[in-house]
Nucleic acid binder design. Structure first.
Lengths: 131, 131
DNA sequence: AAATTATACTTGTATATACAAGTATAATTC
DNA sequence: GAATTATACTTGTATATACAAGTATAATTT
């Protein structure tokens, strides 16, 4: 067994679970997490999003574009800096998003056990940082 | 912290490490693992590859196409069944591929520690199966 | 044995992410 | 203060993977 396929397979399965959980608000998981982050830190900059979400700046740009189209966030640019803000529509959606997040957590912790899944998240996080 | 981003981030980082390790034979990790599997089990069928590599049948088809273009494997079809065989060129490449595999393992176990990384692979594998 | 269903694979198309190059602004160096 | 370098973001393009629909063959049902 090899780390390459196990980690890729895990990511794909988790992605599927997450996709299901976020369907209620009609967002893909990465859009959803990006939006949650912006809701938690209005005015956050793409570069910060990039490092927090472990995604490349170009990917962040693409995700924001989509969310702007959906009228869920807006960008303001001054000089070379950009700030991202949630719209009222996004703020309305917040409670439902919390529910989705919770649904996702319930789902995977039911499959793996609360303790095991918490440990797993911690372990994977630490390891991803080391690589 | 959330399982979604940790698992995705881990997978992306592992992917990068693996890509580097497989560069010597000019193959992407998924092509490389598919070819290794075919070298280990000549005549293996796409459906078996699909379940062993945790990839969809359509993805397997695409990977095989690419490897056929590179003259590293051939398909023979009889009825609805297809068998996949490595070419002599692939067999020649085998020792180098083993080296890449080893390089990859050395790389990540150096970063994580042999024990920890072995445990990790086991854990992740088990968990991916549960989901 | 004809009709239906199941299996195995492929093809059309969509999505996510990344890399590399491009643009614009700010900071540093000389 | 002009020239260079660094930073922040965007755009062009490529790759991996998936889903859904399509095709061809085999198995099952009736």
């Amino acid at each position: 067994m090899c780390l390459y396929f196990t980690s890729a397979a895990l990511a794909r399965k988790v992605e599927k679970l997450a996709t299901e959980s976020w369907k209620k608000v009609n967002l893909s998981p990465s859009h959803a997490y990006l939006l949650m982050t912006v809701l938690d830190e209005p005015g956050i900059q793409p570069s910060t999003l990039s490092s927090q979400l472990h995604l490349q700046p170009s990917t962040i740009t693409r995700l924001i574009e989509k969310l702007e189209e959906k009228k869920l966030m807006v960008r303001t640019t001054e000089g070379k800096l950009t700030n991202v803000y949630p719209t009222p529509k996004a703020k309305e959606l917040y409670p439902k998003m919390k529910e989705c997040l919770n649904h996702f957590y319930q789902k995977y912790s039911a499959l793996l056990g609360k303790e095991e899944s918490n440990r797993l998240v911690m372990d994977i996080g630490k390891i991803a940082d080391k690589l």
